[in-house]
Design a binder for these strands. Structure first.
Lengths: 307, 307
DNA sequence: TAAAAATACTCCATAGGTATTTTAT
DNA sequence: ATAAAATACCTATGGAGTATTTTTA
């Protein structure tokens, strides 16, 4: 592979068309430039300049190379700046995984703010469930994930930043008798069949929900399992059962489903809530991730302790 | 500017993620590679690899550089081949000037044949009158020109290849009384007013035409001058006069104009004809021009002597 | 203990410098 | 006679090699 230095010498000489001046611009003397160009021509097997003692002209082959070489030099020149931008987090690439629930409000505004501040960063967004995100993080396939968990139960062994806290609501088919009431009593809800995600996909929240039933001396009746919140709401609409869902699921606007708050009767356990956290592997330390966190919704800023 | 060698070492190490193997692939030993990468990181001021005694990983900044560096290397790798293609005439650029009369039949088929054989060449075509072409050739702004001249009067001081020989026809407005005859007598034509190009733009042909008149003891009556053949034909259609034009001008398909052969009566001088030649400056010797001439219409091949 | 990166040093290839020659205007 | 490229020869930087040390899994 031909050295950069030679291409730079070629480019300058092609501009100056004068060995002396070109050498001056290259901070060297004329003889080594003569030899360098001769060497370049020798290795290419192509005459690039037409020397006529008194003047230097490009051959057609030489002229054809000029734009290509200039492109090469421009690219090479830009590389250090790119590297530095990537190191500062104002360039490079940021790969984020997110759960569908954040895709409607939280993520769009966050992305908008980030792109305005750091247009040089290529954002790669992939939707994935929480457990898939954790695998991807472990394999280094993404820089961070946005996932749901029960308050105080952010994934272990990872750094995290809580960006949203929301109550769980009950999703019901719109013609269900309980929809008559604006706030439901927990005791009325417990016997109803449930649509719920499998425990493996979101253990902390699954445990919080089933724990709620067990502390009331009941066992939840699982009518159907589904992984995506979107699917769960669709199944509720199909009247397979009720579902506990984060409040932000209301954004899905699925017709045929209504959402209700549930009131814990008497001294029952606190009703489960849900947090959304940005999680990442500490060691991966992508500096761009720090820039991303600067753009987190204001609610998160106060909570930058591990939640 | 950072050396090519360093970027190649970076690229290979980024692939192998192992100093020993990378060094092997680079045909060197491990220690200098370690130092080279350390030097690269030092000059960039950016850590590119995360070394943990037992394994090497890319930092996010390093990962961000990989595609850019690969692009750089691909470009650099391709340059020698480009140079060689340009030197062989199968690449690079060919700038041709042509007169409008060849733009209808001769040039399109020629270009088609050339592009089929040498797709790597960027053809730059500009329409220009003959005298403008000669200036452009002298300034090195085009590699060759296609222009008209009187037989045996190709521009002096230039190389040329005759690619077409055609008679001059007389263009008349369609309602002109002479159009009744299918072949005109020269004596009938000589008194008619003419539309003709200025002598400066095409001296040899201008002289041939005026010479025809003078050898019959007449002076041509110039009704109007115009440079482009297209314009001349338009002016004939506007009934400003008749015009001597190369037969290929019939391709213009201008309505309101008809073309007639003229018969020299008795012992008069031979009727003027017209040649189209490819002309170029010998010294410029663009190898691509040789490829272009290989594709010249077959009629030209036999006439590759200076015409 | 073994595998891999880092360090220390040595050497030589070559990029660049100086002096000079050639050549065409 | 002059300006510019080519040639000859010299110097020294630094890229690559060998030998060795360090480190952690």
């Amino acid at each position: 592979m031909i050295d950069m230095r030679l291409w730079r010498q070629f480019a300058v000489l092609a501009q100056e068309l004068h060995f002396g001046r070109a050498a001056q611009r290259l901070h060297m003397t004329q003889p080594p430039l003569t030899q360098a160009i001769a060497g370049l021509e020798r290795t290419l097997g192509v005459r690039l300049f037409e020397r006529t003692q008194r003047s230097v002209r490009l051959t057609p082959a030489g002229a054809a190379l000029v734009p290509q070489v200039q492109q090469l030099l421009a690219l090479a020149q830009a590389l250090p700046a790119h590297a530095q931008a990537a190191a500062a987090g104002t360039g490079g690439r940021l790969r984020l995984a997110f759960v569908s629930t954040v895709g409607f409000v939280l993520l769009p505004s966050w992305v908008r703010a980030f792109r305005a501040l750091y247009p040089g960063v290529r954002l790669e967004l992939v939707e994935a469930t929480g457990d898939v995100q954790l695998q991807a993080l472990a394999r280094g396939e993404v820089d961070a994930g946005l996932l749901l968990h029960s308050p105080g139960h952010a994934p272990v062994g990872l750094q995290s930043l809580c960006v949203a806290h929301e109550p769980l609501l009950l999703a019901l088919p719109q013609n269900h008798p309980l929809t008559q009431q604006s706030v439901l009593a927990l005791a009325d809800v417990l016997p109803e069949p449930l649509v719920i995600f499998p425990r493996a996909s979101l253990p902390s929240l699954h445990d919080a929900i089933t724990g709620l039933y067990r502390s009331a001396g009941q066992e939840p009746v699982v009518a159907q399992e589904a992984i995506q919140m979107q699917t769960i709401v669709n199944l509720v609409s199909s009247e397979l059962g009720l579902a506990w869902v984060p409040a932000s699921v209301q954004q899905f606007q699925r017709t045929g489903v209504v959402y209700r708050q549930v009131q814990a009767t008497g001294s029952a356990a606190a009703l489960p809530a849900c947090e959304t956290s940005l999680v990442w592997v500490d060691s991966s330390a992508n500096p761009t991730l720090a820039r991303w966190m600067e753009c987190a919704p204001p609610s998160a800023q106060a909570q930058s302790r591990p939640c």
